[in-house]
Amino acid sequence: MPLREIFHGYGSVIAMIKLNQVHKRYPGGYQALKNVTLEIAEGEMVFLTGHSGAGKSTLLKLIAAIERPNLGSVLVNHQNVGVLKPRALPYLRRNLGIIFQDHKLLFDRSVFDNVMLPLQICGFDYRESHKRARAALDKVGLLRREKSQPIALSGGEQQRLCIARAIVNRPSILLADEPTGNLDTEYAHEIMDIFKSFHQVGVTLLISTHDESVLKNDDARVLALKHGELQT
């Protein structure tokens, strides 16, 4: 990696996420992102809005290196994730908490075991991981449901379980793809309150949503995507 790229991130504040003239075109020819440049500082909470198909999910996937850009660079914590070797990917993702639009919960095990999975992957010891899993479930208000099966949870609870799993190994960056997508307003505000509490302890958050109502009371920065382009 050239030196210029390594030091690219150092501005006035430390940029946690930095996209530079990123283009993403899918194999079918669909252009999901066009010339996107943005910067998110450490500890910042940013909303990503836009109609469905505007490229919100694609942008999040580029940051998590689930997809790679065709052009431009994606820097996460000063690391160009677009050119990461496959064997380096797990270590990038351990520093990210990802909340998926479709939850991606595992229905063959209890709520508690779902939250344990990231800790087992990272190799935490038994006692510590149990403590952390309880703390994460407590944080999202699911501690009393720890022995339940995920299928028995309501939509809002499943979403909160997904959040608990994303934060349990205390990542410095949290990516959330439509976290309030299918929830009614009350649940949505609950979820947003949880995110705000992470923001207060210094976690960098990037939350995509097509639901403008959850933004109203916030002073957080909003990035708007339209047909794959960032609106200014």
Binding site: A64, R87, R93, L96, I98, P118
Partner: peptide
């Protein structure tokens, strides 16, 4: 398959 996919997303190495 699902568990493998999720594990990869969460940062599991291939060895794991």
């Amino acid at each position: 398959r699902e568990e493998i996919e999720v594990s990869k997303l969460i940062g599991a190495t291939n060895a794991f």
